[in-house]
Design a binder for these strands. Structure first.
Lengths: 126, 126
DNA sequence: GCCATTACTTACATTTTTTATAGTATCATA
DNA sequence: TATGATACTATAAAAAATGTAAGTAATGGC
């Protein structure tokens, strides 16, 4: 929860929810628009900033930076800077980040299944 | 994806991501602030609107309605209205909604683990 | 000196989500 | 006639997330 107003009701609500529901706590961490997909790519190994950018064609550099910083702050990814010019920075999952694997795979399977269901329902309604 | 502007870049990005990544597709469905927690409660059985409201102390009626409607539109929950006065409405998970169970449980466990880790890291830094 | 490369940063604009507050319909009961 | 219960709806405003566009630092090669 970075850059959110600590006096807002929303902040209080998120805190309260996260305190008593671990799944809400988890959702706060991996909840950005691109976070899950970034993690999903990183499951296969280290990637550089530019590589991630190419894998997520429509992401802006700003969003990529923001999401990576958030993931880093939550200890989901580790950032390694090599003192070279031009710079080289690599991102990889931490141990706890890697433990998201079954969840991500589960979401993936569930999503596929849901998609098929949605298509079936659409077809039935014609 | 209800009430979002179909001409926005954000809409296009979400669509594109959801098309190629089932986990992003899934995240769009269960991604609201309260969705996961609502589903989590419903895993134990049917609940009325008012019961959900009490279980989620700080939620406004509007948010509860919005999230339930979104979940209903995605076929995650089923809504049953009883023709009584005062009205009675019950919410329950559909079959595909219930299949979120392992994912929710996984997130819960992962969240607990992550919390412990975060506490340990904080302690180490003192 | 100038350019190219990489991984950013900054300022600002727009869109989306969440919160706040007040109201509605129904009908049994007091 | 007024009240209470339930599950909402309407409108506005605040806050958060995302997008746009431009700029930065460092240095090796031309």
């Amino acid at each position: 929860m970075a850059g959110i107003k600590e006096t807002s009701t929303n902040y209080a609500n998120k805190q309260a929810l996260a305190d008593e529901c671990a799944e809400a706590y988890a959702a706060n961490i991996i909840g950005g628009q691109w976070s899950l997909v970034i993690c999903s790519w990183l499951l296969n190994g280290k990637l550089r900033f530019g590589e991630l950018k190419q894998l997520l064609p429509n992401i802006t550099e700003r969003m990529l930076t923001l999401q990576l910083r958030k993931l880093e702050a939550s200890h989901i990814v580790k950032r390694t800077i090599y003192a070279e010019v031009p710079p080289r920075v690599e991102y990889e999952l931490t141990a706890i980040g890697y433990e998201l694997k079954p969840i991500i795979k589960g979401l993936e399977e569930w999503g596929e299944k849901h998609k098929l269901m949605a298509i079936r329902i659409l077809a039935d309604n014609e």
